[in-house]
C-alpha cells in the first residue's frame, strides 16, 4: 500500500463567509420581518377598533378600571376636575359618550384615558398641579385620546403585541429577544405619535376655551426640572421626552399665533386618600 502524506484542503468544511457579514445579514432580515408583521397586524387592529361600539367600550372599562387602583374616597376630589372637563367639552367636538373623571389614590404622576369615556387622574399628578390652566391642558390631552380613539387603538396594539409574543415564545432565545426588542420599539414609536397628536388636540382646545395657551407647558417644564431623567429619555419610552413635548408645543403655538395669558389659580382639595410618602 503506497501512502502519500498531504495536508487537508481548507475552505470545505468551514464556510469562508465573514462572521460579521452573516450576523448583520441575519439581524437585518429578522428585524425587517418583525417590522412588516407588526405593521400588518397593527393595521388590522386599527381597522377592527374603528368598529367597536360605545356599548362594547362600556363593557371593556369594567375590566380595566380596577387596574387604575383605589379611587379617592372623598367625593369632592372627583367633582372639581369633572367640572373642568365639562367646561372643556362645551368647546370640543361631540363624543359618543359622557366623559367621567375620577381620581385614583396612586402616587404615580400620570393620567389615563380608559375605554367608555373614563379619565383617571392619579393623585401624584394632581398634587403637582399649580394652576387651573395646566390641569386643563392635561385633561384636554386625555380628551384628545378619546377624540382620536387612541384608547382603543392602544388596546388593539396590545393584542397584536401579545400574539406576536406567543409566536416568539416557541423560538430560540436570541431570536426571541431581538423580535421582542424590535416590537417594543415599534409600539413605543406608535404610542409616542399618539401622545403628540393628543398634545396638539389638547393645545388647540385650551386655546379655544381660554382664548390663550398660558399654562400649556407649565406642567411639562416643572416635570423636566423635577425629574431630569424623563426630560431626555425619549426613544425607549411610551411617551416622548418632556423637553421634546415642550419644544413641539411651543413651535405649534408660534405657528398658530396662540398667545400666553394669565393663569387661573388651582386650589388643592381634600382627596381623602391615605397619606403616602412623596414619590422620589
Amino acid at each position: 500500500m503506497k501512502l502519500t502524506h498531504r495536508l487537508p484542503p481548507e475552505g470545505i468544511n468551514v464556510h469562508p463567509t465573514h462572521p460579521l457579514t452573516e450576523l448583520l445579514y441575519l439581524l437585518g432580515g429578522v428585524v425587517a420581518a418583525v417590522v412588516l408583521v407588526y405593521l400588518a397586524l397593527g393595521w388590522a387592529a386599527d381597522a377592527l377598533v374603528a368598529r367597536i361600539s360605545p356599548r362594547t367600550e362600556g363593557k371593556l372599562v369594567r375590566l380595566l378600571l380596577p387596574a387604575a387602583g383605589a379611587l379617592a374616597p372623598d367625593a369632592r376630589a372627583h367633582r372639581a376636575p369633572q367640572q373642568l372637563v365639562d367646561r372643556l367639552l362645551q368647546q370640543a367636538p361631540p363624543l359618543p359618550y359622557p366623559i367621567r373623571v375620577q381620581v385614583a389614590c396612586d402616587p404615580g404622576i400620570n393620567a389615563l384615558a380608559l375605554p367608555g369615556g373614563h379619565i383617571v387622574l392619579l393623585r401624584g399628578l394632581l398634587d403637582r398641579v399649580r394652576s387651573e390652566n395646566e390641569l386643563a391642558m392635561i385633561l384636554a390631552h386625555e380628551l384628545g385620546h378619546f377624540q382620536l380613539r387612541h384608547h382603543l387603538r392602544g388596546l388593539g396594539r396590545g393584542l397584536v403585541w401579545i400574539s406576536l409574543m406567543a409566536v416568539v415564545g416557541l423560538s430560540a432565545d436570541y431570536g426571541a429577544a431581538l423580535i421582542e426588542g424590535t416590537g417594543r420599539l415599534m409600539s413605543m414609536r406608535y404610542s409616542q405619535e399618539q401622545e403628540e397628536a393628543a398634545d396638539r388636540f389638547g393645545a388647540a382646545l385650551l386655546a379655544r376655551v381660554y382664548g390663550h395657551v398660558g399654562g400649556m407647558g407649565d406642567f411639562f417644564a416643572r416635570m423636566a426640572r423635577e425629574r431630569p431623567e424623563a426630560a431626555v429619555l425619549g426613544w425607549f419610552s411610551t411617551h416622548p421626552s418632556t423637553l421634546q413635548r415642550l419644544a413641539r408645543l411651543r413651535a405649534l403655538a408660534r405657528q398658530r399665533g396662540w398667545r400666553e395669558g394669565p393663569r387661573r389659580p388651582w386650589a388643592p382639595f381634600a382627596s381623602g386618600c391615605p397619606a403616602v410618602a412623596p414619590q422620589r
Binding site: 441575519l26 423560538s171 436570541y174 431570536g175
Partner: peptide
C-alpha cells in the same frame, strides 16, 4: 457565535 446561531435558528 451563539447569538449568530440563535438568529440562524429562526430562518
Amino acid at each position: 457565535k451563539s447569538v449568530a446561531a440563535g438568529l440562524r435558528n429562526l430562518v
